[in-house]
Design a protein around this nucleic acid. Sequence first.
DNA 1: GGTATTGTGTAGAACGTTCTCCATTGTTAG
DNA 2: CTAACAATGGAGAACGTTCTACACAATACC
Lengths: 336, 336
Amino acid sequence: MTSGRVTIADVARRAGVSTAAVSKVVRGAYGVSAEMQAKVTQAIDELGYRPHAAARALRGRTYTLGVMLSDTRNPFFPDIIEGVTGRLGDTEYQVLLGPGGIEPKTQARMIDAMIDRSMDGLILISPVMTDAELAAIATATPVVVVGRHGGAAAYDAVVDDDVMGAGLVVDHLVGLGHTRIAHITHLERARAQGLPHTVRAEGYRQAMRAHGLADDVLATSFTEEGGFEGARELLARDDRPTAIFAGADIAALGVLRAADEAGLSVPEDLSVAGYDNIGIASLKRISLTSVDQDGHVIGATAARLLVERIEERTRSVTSSVSPTLIVRGTTGPPRL
Amino acid sequence: MTSGRVTIADVARRAGVSTAAVSKVVRGAYGVSAEMQAKVTQAIDELGYRPHAAARALRGRTYTLGVMLSDTRNPFFPDIIEGVTGRLGDTEYQVLLGPGGIEPKTQARMIDAMIDRSMDGLILISPVMTDAELAAIATATPVVVVGRHGGAAAYDAVVDDDVMGAGLVVDHLVGLGHTRIAHITHLERARAQGLPHTVRAEGYRQAMRAHGLADDVLATSFTEEGGFEGARELLARDDRPTAIFAGADIAALGVLRAADEAGLSVPEDLSVAGYDNIGIASLKRISLTSVDQDGHVIGATAARLLVERIEERTRSVTSSVSPTLIVRGTTGPPRL
DNA sequence: GGTATTGTGTAGAACGTTCTCCATTGTTAG
DNA sequence: CTAACAATGGAGAACGTTCTACACAATACC
């Protein structure tokens, strides 16, 4: 019950001091003697006092950071969360997640809700909205955006270096002797730019060019079905590719199914690589070569930037996290 | 900026009424004329007023519900969230998720944090703590517990009927002609009881007994490796089972790998079934027969119970959600 | 025509903090 | 010895709501 809650006044009474003094001790503010510190701390422990966040919010901080999730099914979202909470574990901050859904409207509603609850700062994961809207939010509260390339005027950003990730895959495949390497990407109906799949496709093109090879991009969708359809089309060609690089693991799984059905053995007849290194990629039965984003580092970095910005920093920062290639059983030299 | 925030006083000034009147309109309280309603609503729209949740919290509701997640990697947790938010989509309530981690200590800290932020009610997903602790929390704030069988004195509960789910699998396998059906469960070092895997194992035993068959339970762990090891042991026996029912899909994937390595074809030589119906179970390349919990319904039910309890109800309710069997390619008649 | 009753609006005290002064010490400098 | 100053503690006004109590008017009842 709220009525039974221990308040700062209870502590003050117990310790025989003013509420202002207790507040100072709680906040670690300047102007507290060692004796006062001891008295108050003891009273707090005895009563089991915990500051009431809502009351705090009316004047100062809430020590609450919000993470807006665009898609709870995103396979590496748990890693990001772990990175964030891990980084914040020994601080006073608490993390709350807001399921924003995939629609711009619901995401905006969630962000408003978080601001209304006076969170001290926001981490937005792959938010779908215009840069202008983002900037407007960022002027109202400290913001770190994760997973959007490009414009970071009023806010900080953490991105995976998708160009590099795509390059790692191409380099790996070329190193194995492949020359006909196709890429399956996601078809987006306009809207936001700087989205990961676009950047991955661009990275793929750049890397192919660097090796003097012709690129071959097919846009379907980042679903198992999308990977399947894309692969079926690619494998039906006369000079079918010897390797397919899917821009997402889930699509790569579809590619594997298409290979199965076409009677092609992996990796002898066809090498397959994905992106994201989702959990099941490591299952021995799948063993998919993939690019790992290290959500841990991404989350931890986002948390660090946000706290920095809340507490001091004013100019904005963009941090790029380098992915790593995890080579597994689905890639190998092409059969000659 | 907080300083730039539109407050109830701004609205009152604009509409030429008192703040109390505006408050009534906002809350939809009794005692407001149509004219007042219109004036205030217009002022709210013009100014873009949104109530400040923290200020509200000091007196009344925050219209915030907290969902404590024990494990963000839990495969059907996104479904539960969707169920919860879907149910609450057209109400005033907002849902925030609290990553509690798997340790009792971190979970307790998260729950405290949610209470400190004066959430109106809490949904706890598979909380790891004693019934006494749970009861203590439930007296402080309305609580709905998801995924724990048994004791529901001070709080409401939503559970999957795991006994029924296990029965569905056994019935299905027996119907196909299997008689030697083994079950792989999770080995827990004491602690909480009424956990899903225990109940599933019990449901399996009951069902086998009902069919007059001997049960055969092996406890490893609910991991890919656990499923693999368990299956290897089971398949090495003289009278090896013709079907293995793993208590979780992730373990079933390990069983499939063991079958591969033993050169057994599925389902001809070995039928495999899992539980949870995780996303990849439906991939054609896996096509795992599994029990689906319908996280949607579980989440929606939890949300409904919580709101009911916040707004009126006092006696506690336990709701059991019936699972369904999804038959796919990994189960079939045993080879004679 | 007086008394209930109902409907509508407002005043103002909470709610639990933070934080800006201000008061009181004790210490140091001259 | 006094003025200046640092260190410490406290008073009390915010912060933006809700909600109880009350005022007033209009209507209904006898």
